[in-house]
Nucleic acid binder design. Structure first.
Lengths: 208, 208
DNA sequence: TAGATTGTTAATCGATTAACAATC
DNA sequence: TAGATTGTTAATCGATTAACAATC
């Protein structure tokens, strides 16, 4: 391996490139220059070329970038050619919303199970998934090759759930709980702190 | 006004400070030094002091920071002492999840209305809110002093909804649609692109 | 007063932008 | 070949960290 470490600033921009390239593809655009993409996306052409060149040369002098090729390459970089099996812990409103967020499916993200500690929920079906009790989490993860765990429960239980799934080898957590998870270095956590986001909006609104 | 512009990097960290200070308050901690906070939060003490000093001196040499006071000051900076009235456009799973995200309530964020274009949804109640038809959005915003609009519909309709609410004076949009909204300079948009977040997780998992 | 710790300036580091030679 | 546009190096800008004088 021994790959160059890419800064998170670059990584954060990749999904947006991917989205724009997908749109261009849909429009039937075959090739695009960094300058034209820069105009559309409102970033500098320089940044676009620097970002792409972190991963090797995807373009051609005098021509630009082939949209289809670049789209696929960025998809590969993002790991979208891999299949991922997920479970969601927490069958509250948010957990249910994520369950049905079916447009992930076609990107290789498969939502396989839904868990909740509320006995009244257990057994109920959300879409095609049946809600299972919390004590089945470990077995389900192992039996179904789950590699991503989505935490959609209040902060009180989140840390404990994270500890449990990390213990049996899960290496990726998508965390919606409003708490920082403390995990080993080789486990990646992606936080979605909705209230942080709303506070940022509140600040920017107030200080317009 | 004429206030110094604070970088978004700093703003993004404020909600996290706010959360940790709230926890400290709950623990009954009265004062804290930048060094101790740095240890807890895993950031440098230098950064903490720099961040706070963007807004004036909240501490005292030789003593540190008063937890309660600092908590309140950051709350004020974030605009949490102001009342905000919100509506949610889109009564799908995500919209419903946000509706019931009631812990925002006690921070002065009031979810006042829920809208959907699906005639079958209109009239149904989600919690205490009745789903209203899309053509009532403008009147409702004006009549109820709505200052934040939450967009929780697919990308297809999102741009149009944004245009409509901006037209009648809304200055803040919390956007969950997977599309960039093009709004005037004096309108703030806070994006929550869930699939971008999942792609980042996917990348970081693959390149661990 | 002595010790602690801030507020703030200076140094460093990293990310973005500009420039241009390489090359299609 | 001439024109266009990348890949890449150099310059700039901004953010983070270190250091320390001010002061409680």
């Amino acid at each position: 391996m021994d790959e160059k470490v890419i800064s998170q600033a670059v990584i954060s921009r990749l999904p947006r490139y991917y989205r724009y390239l997908g749109d261009l593809k849909d429009e039937g655009v075959e090739r695009i220059s960094s300058q034209e993409l820069s105009r559309r996306m409102n970033v500098t052409a320089s940044q676009i070329r620097q970002d792409f060149n972190n991963f090797g040369g995807f373009g051609q002098q005098g021509y630009g970038y082939n949209v289809d090729y670049l789209y696929n390459e960025i998809g590969k970089i993002l790991g979208l050619n891999e299949e991922h099996n997920l479970i969601i812990v927490g069958a509250g409103n948010l957990g249910r919303a994520l369950t049905n967020y079916s447009n992930y499916e076609n990107r290789g993200f498969h939502f396989m199970g839904l868990f909740d500690k509320n006995p009244e929920f257990v057994g109920k079906k959300i879409g095609s998934l049946e809600i299972m009790p919390m004590d089945k989490i470990e077995d389900f993860i192992i039996d179904n090759g789950i590699d991503i765990v989505v935490i959609a429960i209040p902060k009180a239980g989140a840390v404990q759930v994270a500890d449990r799934v990390v213990k049996i080898g899960v290496k990726a957590i998508w965390n919606f709980a409003h708490v920082d998870l403390n995990v080993p270095d080789d486990v990646v956590v992606e936080n979605v702190h909705l209230s942080d986001s709303l506070m940022k909006l509140s600040y920017n609104l107030a200080s317009r």
